[in-house]
């Protein structure tokens, strides 16, 4: 023991700290460093460092807490007063508090009726949208003109043009999204849908982080 403390005084520990962005936790859980951030330090200290207690979850399920990097650094300093801490990346962690046992029961899959209703709305909505689009841009006249251009005679309802057009409509949309019913064509880059989901999630996360920081500032 005596020798160990001498060794500790000679080596100045360097700790690299990278805080996670979003963390899920249970109510009444004690958050240790490993839950909230990634740390790198000398090998013999790594385990000890990761078990440093940072904060206890005081809020209830469904709410969120914000833990700033400074609180984390303070907790580290209490246990390793001589460590040099390098901080990389974000400065706050959002802790979402969920009760996982409850979640698995209630948050199951939405009922089939619900999905069916949404499907019906989407189906008819999309049909209406495209019909209104056609009426809006007077596609009728354009098609009649094109038909007259190629065939030489005018026809009021150029079905020969319209039906391939409708099929091509679906084809174009499939090309754009690059997947139809889980079957991807190129198996390469992400489909625009996935990109949109990612962007939307990012926006929501950033905004809620901003909002909660504001709330936390007002409460302090």
């Amino acid at each position: 023991m005596f020798i160990m403390s001498e060794e500790l005084e000679c080596i100045k520990e360097e700790i690299f700290l990278r805080v996670k962005r979003v963390v899920k936790a249970q109510p009444n859980q004690t958050l240790v460093l490993a839950d909230l951030a990634e740390v790198i330090t000398n090998k013999d200290l790594q385990d000890q460092l990761e078990q440093v207690k940072v904060k206890e979850v005081t809020k209830k399920a469904g709410q969120s807490m914000i833990i700033t990097a400074l609180e984390i650094i303070r907790a580290i300093k209490i246990n390793f007063p001589q460590a040099g801490i390098e901080h990389l990346g974000e400065a706050d962690v959002i802790v979402d508090i969920e009760d996982t046992s409850q979640r698995n029961l209630t948050d199951n899959q939405p009922s089939k009726l619900y999905v069916f209703a949404i499907g019906v709305i989407l189906f008819f909505g999309a049909a209406m949208a495209i019909m209104n689009f056609h009426a809006d841009v007077s596609m009728v006249k354009v098609h009649q003109q094109i038909y007259k251009l190629i065939m030489g005679k005018s026809k009021e309802n150029p079905l020969l043009l319209n039906i391939p057009y409708s099929i091509g409509l679906g084809f174009g949309m499939i090309i754009f999204f690059n997947k139809i019913y889980k079957y991807k064509f190129n198996k390469d880059d992400p489909s625009p849908l996935e990109i949109e989901m990612y962007l939307y999630k990012n926006k929501v996360n950033q905004f809620s982080l901003h909002q909660k920081t504001e709330l936390a500032k007002n409460n302090d």
Binding site: I130, F133, I146, Y147, I150, M151, P158, L160, L161, N162, I163, P164, Y165, S166, I167, G168, L169, G170, F171, G172, M173, I174, I175, F176, F177, P192
Partner: peptide, 17 residues
């Protein structure tokens, strides 16, 4: 006519998507 109709549809499908 059929081919051009299909191509029209493809373009509008891309735009609509």
């Amino acid at each position: 006519v059929i081919i051009i109709g299909f191509i029209f549809g493809t373009f509008i499908g891309l735009v609509a998507a």
